[in-house]
Amino acid sequence: MGGTQSTHEQPPLLSTPWRTINWKDYQTPLQYVESYKLPSEGKQIRILLHGPVGAGKSSFINSVQSVLHGRIYVQALSDTGFKYSFTEKYTAYKIQKGDQKSFYPFVFNDIMGLSPVNGVLVDDVKLALMGHVKEGYKFNIESKLSDADPHFIKSPTDNDKVHILVCVINADNLTLMHQATLQQIREIRGKASELGIPQVVILTKIDKAYPELKENLRNVYKVASLKNQMEQFSADVGIPMNCMFPVKNYSEEIELNSDTDSLILSVLRNIINFGGDCVNFHTNPSGHLD
């Protein structure tokens, strides 16, 4: 991977998609997410997004909120022109339900982007995984969070800990990723695995990487070169293909699109399922629900 030139000259389409999505029905997965509940009262799924600078972590959070609110929604600030991470603080995003009186049982945490030079330290990501980082902490690229810092949570609760780790990658730069960044992703994945935290990969900006998807997003699982690159990244970091999802974030649009929604809901449904399994396991290690 890192350093290989990207080749996206009209890759051939497969005759049949290698993964299926019911494009005609995005309401069913939407309803699934809207009605999702954890068995244990007061518990929440903490979703930590990490990945290279500019991959689209904040945009994915905004896109999820847009789908769930039924309109374009911008809460997590992002900047497409930034060469360095626009996110500098550890920020949590809860999503209100339509009645405005309750929240979905999951929370997204946005974190400073990975970079070989000016990115978040891997040690800080590991601390976040364990629940030691308090919301509002401003990351220091020179030194990791100290246990003497007021933003260090010394005795994290289950709700402070991360239940699913989501690696967000820009599909347009997938083959150009720096080897040092790839190694950071492997190291973070290793810590998550050690802690029993499931992991998912999201490939963003697929419409920019593959021109045929800009014309028809429903071809996403027919693009042969996209599948090949996903398989290569899967081999590089050790995350299986059934935990990898290509998406298109809302970035230019002012209206929602059902095909874009379908891809976002596909990954969101799996994220909350995997994260919910993690919450339930730590709540009831014996495997028996209360």
Score class of each variant (00 low, 15 high):
Gln31Cys: 03
Gln65Pro: 02
Asp99Leu: 02
Ser102Glu: 15
Ser59Ala: 12
Ser35Gln: 14
Val53Phe: 07
Val53Ala: 08
Ala76Tyr: 11
Lys24Thr: 10
Lys57Arg: 11
Ser40Met: 13
Tyr26Met: 06
Gln65Trp: 05
Gln27Thr: 11
Asn62Ala: 06
Leu38Asn: 07
Tyr93Trp: 09
Val64Gly: 12
Ser59Met: 14
Gly81Leu: 10
Gly51Ser: 03
Lys37Cys: 11
Gly81Trp: 10
Glu88Ser: 08
Val67Met: 00
His69Trp: 06
Ile72Asn: 06
Lys83Ala: 14
Phe86Pro: 08
Leu38Gln: 14
Gln44Val: 13
Phe86Met: 01
Ser40Cys: 10
Ser58Phe: 02
Asn22Gln: 11
Glu34Gly: 00
Lys24Trp: 03
Leu38Ala: 11
Leu38His: 12
Ala92Tyr: 03
Arg71Trp: 03
His50Val: 10
Gln31Val: 01
Ile95Pro: 02
Gln31Ala: 06
Ile47Leu: 04
His69Lys: 15
Ser102Met: 05
Ser66Tyr: 15
Gln96Ser: 11
His69Asp: 10
Lys57Thr: 09
Gln96Gly: 05
Ala55Ser: 14
Gln27Tyr: 07
Leu38Thr: 12
Gln75Ile: 06
Val74Gln: 15
Gln65Lys: 14
Gln75Ala: 12
Glu34Trp: 05
Lys83Gly: 04
Gly54Trp: 07
Pro52Lys: 12
Lys97Ile: 00
Ser58Gln: 10
Gln31Trp: 01
Thr28Leu: 05
Leu77Asn: 04
Glu88Tyr: 04
Gly51Val: 03
